[in-house]
């Protein structure tokens, strides 16, 4: 480590390279294992946000959809801070737009505003076989 690196680290400006290696690896392996490239992930992220937005107002800037890996299981983790639920008429319109047979009943909007934190959906897989 050079003196410059050392000073940078003391000032908290630079992480040790080992830590960077781990972070980079975790990210790249999450992609490798799910076989989703960043482009596809971005497309999926946009589409998920679109769907969620039909029901609740979310903070697009803060919204985060990413792949996380633990114990060789990759999970799609979405963290979407909700500003507020959409008014009922908008919901009905949204439901109609996606061709739902019935409009949701009156209590639904409140219930939809539930999962503020992460909602891990499952997408497992190791590398594909031959």
């Amino acid at each position: 480590m050079t003196l410059f690196d050392f000073i940078q680290r003391l000032l908290g400006r630079q992480k040790p390279s080992g830590t960077m290696a781990k972070e980079r690896l975790q990210l790249v392996l999450a992609h490798d294992r799910s076989d989703l490239n960043p482009e596809l992930l971005e497309q999926m992220r946009r589409e998920i946000l679109e769907v969620v937005q039909r029901y609740v107002e979310i903070d697009i800037e803060e919204g985060d959809v990413s792949l996380e890996t633990e114990d060789r299981v990759t999970a799609l983790v979405a963290n979407l801070p909700i500003k507020r639920a959409r008014p009922l008429p908008a919901l009905v319109a949204a439901a109609a737009a996606v061709g739902m047979a019935q409009a949701p009943d009156a209590e639904a909007p409140q219930e939809l505003a539930v999962p503020l934190a992460s909602e891990p959906t499952e997408e497992s897989s190791t590398a594909k076989s031959d």
Binding site: L29, D32, R33, R72, T126, A127, K128, S129
Partner: peptide, 9 residues
Amino acid sequence: DRVIGLLNT
């Protein structure tokens, strides 16, 4: 990691 995936399958 790739190899481990293949061995698992």
